[in-house]
Amino acid sequence: MRRRRLAGFAAALVVLACWPAAALAAPFWPVSGQTLQARSISWLFWLVMAIAGLFLLVVLGTLLYVIVAFRGREGQPDPRPVYGHLRLEMWWAGIPFAILVAVFIFTVREVGVETAIAPDALPITLIGHQWWWEFQYPGAVSANELHVPVGRQVRLQLLSADVVHNFWVPELAGKEQMVPGQTNLWTFTPEQPGRYDGACAEYCGTQHGWMRLTVFADAPADFDRWLAGQGQPVSQQVLSQHQDALRLYTANACGACHAISGVSNGKAAPDLTHLGSRSTIGAGVLQNTPDNLAAWIQDAQQFKPGSYMPKFRLSDADARQLAAFLEDLR
């Protein structure tokens, strides 16, 4: 009997230990925001976690106490019935009510902080596509890698070209849906230069899993340089260097889906005008290296099955030639 009780307690301990063990097994501070908005979320998060945690401890503690203290003995007569206690019941409805009113007040306050948009915020339009991202800046278009300047608030207009997507970069701010036929607004103010990973957070079909994105927060000067570069068309020099690749590009109708400024203006797929300046391809599925790019052009389905980039019957040499051309688009 004793043994069994010990085993029970051991099992209970294992269960309780899961939580801290899991916490230790992984770095646990992603909402320790890199932006004003994320810090506001983070602050509220820990406040509410603390309240909820305290509540959890008190109630679980009571439960454990009850379990230990009121264990029935064999043959024990039924205890005296207690049918209720109005005053007590009022209290335990009233105390949670008071706590929740306080939490609600903080909620309203922080929502105000997180949604305020300054008039000089940098407007960027984000368009979700099945399974990649399009970014429209004043004067430039890009895909899958969002560059933002440090120290300036951005004002994101979220749109969708097909189904519902959801823009989420955990370290920068919460998330917001991209709903077709509707424009949603979202904002954050990057403070630390760096690279932040994000993903689509609303199931949007086959390759939802690989609809990822990267945000680069650049120093203002770097950002201006980057933006000016993205606005440039492809130079004549690059075009004349890659005549053969251009022929392949046309012969395979890449331009029906893709845009390269001055070459083609397809709208169904990521703009390739500056593909060489991106660090990943396929919304994060591959590193952008010449070999990966060639393999992707030959058979994107191998890396991102179900995506709308078709498989092409290209010889290795042709694929490498195309890849070399695209890598030169910086």
């Binding site: 979320i41 509220l44 509410v48 939490v103 909620t107 997180e114 959801n166 701010a173 609303e202």
Partner: peptide, 10 residues
């Protein structure tokens, strides 16, 4: 709590 939901929903 709306901001927490913005962070962790989905």
């Amino acid at each position: 709590v709306v901001p927490i939901d913005w962070q962790v929903n989905g």
